[in-house]
Deep mutational scan, measured.
Amino acid sequence: TFELKGKVGKVVKIAEDHYLVEVEGDKWIAYSDEKLSLGDRVMVVDVDGLKLKVKRIP
Rank of each mutant, 00 (worst) to 15 (best):
D26K: 06
G49E: 10
D17S: 11
G9S: 02
I29P: 13
K5P: 08
P58A: 05
L36K: 01
D48P: 02
V42D: 00
S37G: 08
R56K: 13
M43D: 07
V23E: 01
K5S: 07
G39K: 11
K55E: 15
D17R: 15
K5R: 03
V11Q: 00
G6F: 02
D40G: 05
I57R: 04
D26Y: 12
Y19F: 08
R56A: 09
W28F: 12
V23C: 04
E34C: 10
G25L: 09
K27C: 05
V8E: 15
D26H: 13
K51I: 10
E24D: 04
V12T: 11
T1M: 15
T1H: 15
V11W: 01
L38H: 12
E16H: 11
K35Y: 13
E16D: 07
V42S: 04
V42K: 00
I57K: 09
A30H: 00
D17W: 09
K5F: 15
E16N: 10
E3C: 03
D40L: 06
E22F: 11
K13M: 12
G6P: 00
K53M: 13
G25H: 08
L52T: 03
E22Y: 11
K13W: 11
D46L: 03
E34R: 05
G39M: 08
L20H: 09
M43I: 14
K27V: 06
H18K: 12
E34I: 05
V45I: 13
L50P: 09
S32Y: 05
V12K: 06
G6S: 01
W28Y: 14
L52K: 01
G6I: 00
D48S: 07
F2H: 15
F2D: 15
E3H: 03
E3L: 02
V54F: 01
L20S: 06
V47A: 04
D46I: 02
E34M: 07
D33Q: 07
E34V: 10
K53T: 12
R41G: 13
F2N: 15
R41I: 13
W28Q: 02
I29V: 10
V11P: 02
K35M: 10
I57Y: 10
K35T: 08
V12H: 11
K35Q: 13
S37H: 06
V12C: 06
I29W: 08
K35F: 13
Y31D: 14
L50V: 14
E22C: 06
V8C: 13
I57P: 09
E16W: 08
D17L: 11
K35C: 08
E3F: 03
F2Q: 15
V8R: 03
Y19L: 10
G39I: 13
K10T: 14
V45G: 05
L38I: 12
L20K: 06
W28I: 03
